[in-house]
Structures are given as C-alpha cells and as structure tokens.
Design a protein around this nucleic acid. Structure first.
Lengths: 207, 207
DNA sequence: AACGTTATGCAACACTTGTTATGTAACTAA
DNA sequence: TTAGTTACATAACAAGTGTTGCATAACGTT
C-alpha cells in the first residue's frame, strides 16, 4: 500500500484560489502553489495533468462563487436592484476572480459576461414584470440596460479606477433605474426603438 | 564614425505597436520584436534600457491614437454622440491598444478610464450646455452617464463578448441619451439626487 | 587608404516557467 | 516482520524570458 496522501485535490484548488485572490491568476505557478502548501511541485501533477487544468478548476470555483452572490441578491425586496448590488459586491470583494470570469477569458472558453446577463435576466424576469407591470420583453430590456450600467461600474472597480463611493454608485444606479423605467413606460415605441426620436429631441432642446 | 544605424527608435516602436495590435502586449518580447524587424535583439537595447521602457512608448502611442479618435468625434453635429461613437470605433478597431490603456494598466501608472472621461467632459461641455440648455454641472453629469454606458460596450467589445451590431448599439445609446436627458430636464432635483424617488416609483408601479 | 568609433550579430548568462525521471520512504496487506 | 505499492522530495530538463559581453564590420573623418 502506498503512503497516505498529504493533500486532497480540494486543498490544492483552495490554495490555488487563494493565490489567485491575492496576486491574480497569472501569478499562479506550480512553484508558488507548492510553496504555499509547503510541499514540492510533484503532488500537484498527480492530481492535475497540467497547470491549465488546475486553472480551469479555479475558474469553475469563481463561477460558482459568483452564482452564490447573485442568488443572495434575489432575496432583496426589489430583486433586480438586489442583484445589481451583488454584482458590485462581488467585484469589490473578489476583483481577481471577477477578472478571470469577465475580463480575461481564455481563448475559446465558454461563458463570460453575456452569459451571466442571461442568467440574471431569467432569475429576475418575473419579479420585474410584476413589480413594474411590464411584459417579458420589456422587462428583459429594462434589466439589460441596468446591467450595462452595473457592468461599467464593476469594470471600473476591478481595474482599480472607480472613484465613487458605494452611496454615489447607489444613487447613480437609482437614477438610471428610474429614468429608464419612466421611458419604457411613458414613451410609446421605446421598447422596440420605433419612437419618434426627433420630436423628443426638439422638445428637449427648446426647454 | 560608427556605421549607419539600421533602425530608428520610431521604427522599433512602430513594430512593437504592430505586434501589440496582433497579439497583445504580453506577446511583445525582445525576440519577437527582433524577428519582426529582421535583426537581432541587440539594437533594441541600444535605444531602450529595458523592455518595460519600450512598452511605455507603446502605451504612449496608444494614448495619442486614442486622443486622435476622440478629436475626430468632436466634429460630429452632436458632439457628445460623436465622441461616444469614436469610443466604440477605437475599441473595435484597436482592441489590444484599448486593453493596455483601460483594462490592464500597469501598477502605479497614471491615466486610465476616469482620466479619459474627464478629458472628454471638458471637450464636450460647452457643446452640451448650449444644445440642451444645461448648466456645466448637469452637462458633466449627463455626459458621464452616457460615458458609463459606452464604457460597458467598449469593454464587451474588447473582451470579444459584444453580441450587438453597430445599429443595435447606436439604438440603445440613443435611448439612454434621450431618457437621461429627459430626466435631467424634467425631474426637479434629479441632478443632485434630491428628487422624490418614492413618489416616482409609486407612479411607475401603478401604471 | 588608414583609423577610430560603435551598431550589430552571435552567443551566452541568469532567471522563470511547466513538466518529469529517479530514488526514497511511508504505509498496509500478508 | 516483510514486501509491494506509490506519494513524495529532489533535482533535472526543455523552453522561454530579459539582458549583456564580445568580436566584427561598416562608416565618416582624417
């Protein structure tokens, strides 16, 4: 019989995630990981054929954690805003994990930002339809518009460029939310883009 | 007298930019660059002490090119929309240069997305104030809001995730533009966030 | 035409990366 | 207690990186 294993697969992935959190996935090397675990690099390759395989597991972990954040946001009284707040929390608390999911996806990988949007739309659709009395198409468009705004904030956050406080972001977000909602409900043809842009523009200019 | 130089500094930077365009700045190595120029790696280090120094020049080039794009957008009849369109063009035509400016800024570097926003605000402010009869503060806020939307599109574009056509983006952008402009002009207190959110929300819910 | 200067090519150095060959020793079944 | 299996440490390999020492040859000046 062989000697007892010193490390389970899970411990290795956890340590790999920890390194990624601290220094980004590019700093996740075999030697760095081995050093963190206090072993040689050999055991890593008994569980994973290549480092790339291990990195895939780190991405899977990030994806799952992200999903948990979103689920948590659904519990909020206004679920679409709750989900938006969780986007921001994830970006702020796990910037490096955010990056590997949405900023530096490896070539040919599935998933990414648009897939995450679709998931959120499905989760929030019913709630938005009821709350604002919208049909499914409008609810999806409305949520997508808000998502676009939150996406720019999360990008700013993880690149270390966001100058706004939580309160400011929240305030900006609310204003987007209300102005879009008003437009979707009050401007005929706003949903499919067939509304009379010129008429509205002229009205805005003269005021 | 020494022999004639085979390469001027500028040619080296140009080749470096070309490699960055094609494969990203991480693929810009001394040997790759030398191979493209058809020389050994030695001459590179007569002009640049380190590769990092050369990369700085590539970033400077990208920044200047970006500035030219923006300047071009100012000529449009509605200059704020023209600038927005140029953001998107730059992201689509120079995704790798966009990345080094706004997605992977090296630690401790100046500039970045928020600085670019400030620059654009200054360039567009007067035009927006006149066109929509806004004060400077409102004009800046309005432009920033639109910038946030364009920023999410450019990020999607350079990460290869944007599923929208130019027309779709243009349409979405126009809708944001109009709905925000209406809100800034029609909702008292919208600029400083002191407007009565609850009243508006109730109104939207019952409709 | 000879000279001194120096840009360049060649090849090496030092370092980091992923990955692996080898020997050892830990463990359990006998 | 013995033996076989195999996880592990050690150390190496190969490939790739930035950077540099050295010899050479090209060039304008003299």
């Amino acid at each position: 019989m062989p000697p007892k294993v010193k490390f389970q697969k899970e411990e290795i992935v956890n340590a790999a995630v920890e390194i990624t959190r601290e220094k980004g996935i590019d700093a996740l090397t075999a030697r760095e990981l081995a050093s963190k675990l206090g072993v040689s690099t050999r055991p890593i390759f008994t569980y994973f054929d290549t480092m790339e395989q291990l990195k895939s597991e780190v991405r899977a972990y990030a994806k799952e954690l992200y999903r948990e954040y979103i689920q948590h946001g659904l519990k909020a009284p206004i679920s679409n805003l709750g989900v938006g707040r969780q986007y921001l929390r994830f970006a702020k608390e796990e910037p490096e994990l955010y990056k590997i999911l949405y900023l530096k996806k490896p070539d040919g990988s599935t998933g990414g930002a648009m897939e995450a949007l679709k998931l959120s739309q499905e989760l929030v659709r019913d709630s938005v339809m009821k709350k604002y009395n919208m049909d499914a198409v409008t609810a999806d468009l409305y949520f997508r518009d808000l998502w676009l705004v939150s996406y720019s904030f999360t990008t700013l956050i993880v690149t270390g460029e966001c100058p706004y406080t939580d309160e400011e972001i929240s305030s900006i977000f609310t204003r987007f939310s209300l102005s879009l909602c008003k437009a979707y409900k009050e401007i005929p043809g706003f949903t499919d883009g067939s509304f009379d842009k010129d008429a509205i523009f002229k009205e805005l200019v003269k005021k």
